Amino acid sequence: MAIEYSKIVRLPVTPAVNGFSTDLVLPSAFSFGSGGGFINFYVGFGDYECGISTRNGESSWHWFANSGAVPGTDAGGAYGEFVNGDTVNISLQLLLSSGSNYVVKFYVNGVHRHSFSPTYSSTATFANGRVVLACAQGQWDSSASIPNPLPAFTIRHNQVKTFNTKYRNASGTWINVNSSNCTPGITHSPAGGTTPAPVDYSVSAASFGSGIYYASVKV
């Protein structure tokens, strides 16, 4: 098991869901220093995580679709599909596949990008519905000694904006996610020890009553 050197913002909801959607305004700029790494912005529920990503050595973004519980079903698009500053809608939903079988499908800007293979009933729901804004720079084996202080964290990106965020509940109703039903969490990994600046994401929830949330990694 690996421990990532990462910084994370989570916008979770408590009810079980079978759909999650948000609009993203991608950062106007990002950079990777000597530590390399990646930046992921995604919607998720259960073990499904799907969204928009970039990594060290790339100048643009692509979509990705992952499931930690179903090895071999991950997918992704080509870098260059999205560029800095783009507004992108990402949506993860349980939808009819064939007969009475339902599968989890991922859409980007309303276009179907990927379907996962496990089948469910029409009434299936999933825990841990969320939006995640994250970046990670390397990792350590869990049995290894974590350096203290940690090395410099060299990933930077300007503000990402998430808005028009909604989840679909067990009754099939889409519900707006805002400060009335969601408490964002800001974390970094590994915990403990001395973490050089920037320790966490810089965030602004001033407009979260209207469902708008901003986050950036900066000194």
Results as ranks from 00 to 15, higher is better:
W140R: 07
N148Q: 05
V131I: 14
G76I: 03
T165R: 04
T125M: 03
S180I: 06
L96V: 12
G44R: 04
F20P: 02
S179Q: 02
T54K: 03
Y213S: 06
G44H: 05
N169A: 11
Y120E: 01
V70H: 13
L26E: 03
H188C: 15
F30I: 07
N178I: 09
W63P: 04
N169C: 05
I175E: 07
G85Q: 00
L96D: 12
Y107G: 10
P151L: 05
S145V: 15
S31P: 05
Y213A: 07
F126K: 01
F106G: 03
Y42A: 13
V217D: 10
S60A: 13
F32C: 10
N84E: 04
D23H: 11
G37D: 06
A78M: 10
P198H: 01
G110A: 01
Y5V: 03
H157E: 02
S31W: 11
V160Q: 00
T187V: 08
G76P: 04
N158Y: 10
S100Y: 04
P151V: 01
P198F: 02
A205G: 14
Y107F: 15
V217E: 06
F106E: 05
G172A: 03
P198S: 03
G185R: 11
G51R: 00
Y201C: 10
T173S: 15
P15Q: 04
Y79W: 05
G193T: 06
S189V: 04
K218A: 13
Y5K: 08
K161E: 13
L24T: 08
Y79K: 00
Y120D: 00
G172K: 02
T22V: 09
T87P: 01
N66M: 14
N164Y: 05
P196M: 06
T165L: 05
T87G: 01
S143R: 14
N84R: 02
W61G: 02
S145L: 13
V17I: 08
S53N: 11
G37W: 10
R10S: 14
L24M: 10
F116K: 02
S207F: 13
W61M: 02
T119C: 01
A75H: 07
T22R: 05
S31T: 14
S216A: 14
N148T: 10
S97Q: 12
P118C: 01
P151S: 05
F208L: 10
C135K: 08
M1A: 13
N169S: 08
F82R: 00
A134T: 10
G44W: 04
G68T: 07
L133E: 00
F64Y: 13
G76K: 01
V104H: 04
A170T: 12
G77V: 02
G85E: 01
L150A: 09
G51Q: 08
G77D: 02
T73S: 11
S179K: 06
P118I: 02
G72I: 06
S91E: 15
A170W: 06
R55F: 09
D141C: 12
R168W: 09
T54L: 02
T22K: 00
H62V: 07
T173G: 12
M1N: 14
T173D: 12
N56F: 14
S117P: 00
G19R: 11
